Simulated scan of single mutants.
Amino acid sequence: MFEKSTALFPVKERYCFLSHCAVSPLYIGAASAAAGFQQSMVEGGLTTLSTFIDLLPRFRDGFAALMRTRPEQVSFVHSTAEALGQLANGYPFAPGDQIVSYVHEYPSNHFPWAIQQRRGVELILLPNRNPLNSFAAEERPMGWSLDELERVCGPKTRVVAISHVQFTSGYAADLVALGSFCRERGIDLIIDAAQSLGCLPLYPEAWGISAVAASGWKWLLGPKGAAVLYTSEELREKLTPVLAGPGMMRQQFDYLDHRWNPFSDGRLFEYSTLPWDHVAAFAVIVEDIFHRYSIEAIRDEVFRLQDLFLAHLDRERYRPLCFDALHRSGILSIDVEREAETLVKQLARRNVIVTERAGYVRVAPHFYLDDEQVITAARCFNELAARG
């Protein structure tokens, strides 16, 4: 079913790449599209731009289809931090309002909300909780409790800002249940999807999510410095723009028209010049990969590859964090008996690429890997453990 050739994914010629939760190899079709734009700029500069007028509509159409939303809800941004910074700083908080998040969030989904405390907003951080009865409770990050979140949310709670998938442990939120809870109480649910979009289904309109931000260089296999933002119309109506430029204005290229007349759709966040080579890359990625394969099929293949890895892993020496189906993600984090950073380096010398976070070794295969690669990676883990 899946096209897994080295022609499309040349990284396979040298590496077993199991770190799509970090910085992924760029999809070759995206690289070609970006290079094609740059070559056109070399040859003609301004004179060639009109030939790329369809890039943004293709980008918006593609990601709208991926998230089952409308193109006008989609924005091109440069990073998750930029997207969440615009939302947090533009949100109409009043002193005493509350934001609920998790104590071990990734910095891009922590600092934009933390600085709202200078506006008199209270930031409530859910404590770390261990959902694995078979796994000894430790201080290292694991997950959080939906019951606890529901208890701390009150009449002053305006925003719940949480990652779909926690970058350390791989713990995935039940967004259907969380979205339903927030929608019933008029709370804006804002999701950092850097570790899920491109791997797990994510349907913000159906699930009651106000905003989704995701960097493009992880599961989306896109260029570094490119990201996507979904916002609901209701959320945009609340916000005050904190970044401004000609790109967000209805008058567009009439640069002497200084009226404040911004778009009300997703273009509100595209305030200035975009990196068009990145837009070209994204447009090709969604068309070649995420239109060709359903996100459910991609998720199932990622989980199958994880299960194959686990079937060959020495479970006497390694303790994987195996969450139940509701909280499973593309990240399989493994507790190791030895120095995690040392193990990562030793695996890299065998061309098996993984990463370490919070003492866990993270194994994150994507759909294009072969079974033999995953089995070989597990055997490398076992051989290194046997050598001590």
Score class of each variant (00 low, 15 high):
Q306N: 09
D257C: 08
Q252L: 08
W144E: 01
L369E: 04
C182E: 02
Y318V: 01
S264C: 05
F263K: 01
Q166P: 00
R299F: 06
I124G: 00
F76Y: 14
L126N: 02
E150C: 01
W276A: 00
A206Q: 15
D188T: 12
L189H: 13
L369F: 09
T168Q: 11
A30N: 01
G222Y: 07
V165S: 12
P107N: 07
C153S: 04
R183F: 11
S40R: 07
I209K: 09
L305T: 12
F37H: 01
L197F: 14
S180I: 02
N109W: 13
G36V: 07
L49M: 12
V284F: 03
G186K: 11
L18P: 01
V374K: 09
Y91T: 03
P320W: 15
W260V: 03
E287V: 10
P95T: 06
K4P: 07
N128T: 11
V354H: 08
L235Q: 04
V361F: 05
W276V: 04
Y27D: 00
L243E: 05
N261D: 15
G44N: 10
L256S: 03
L239D: 00
Q73Y: 06
L175F: 15
A173Y: 10
L55M: 14
S169W: 05
L18T: 05
G44L: 14
A114H: 07
R328N: 07
S101H: 05
L55K: 08
E383Y: 09
I187D: 02
L126Y: 02
W219N: 10
V100P: 08
P223W: 08
L123V: 11
G143E: 06
F323K: 04
N89I: 00
D300V: 09
L347Q: 07
F63V: 02
A213Y: 14
E341H: 15
P155L: 11
L343V: 10
A297M: 05
A297R: 08
L66H: 09
S180E: 10
H312V: 01
D61K: 15
A386M: 06
F181D: 00
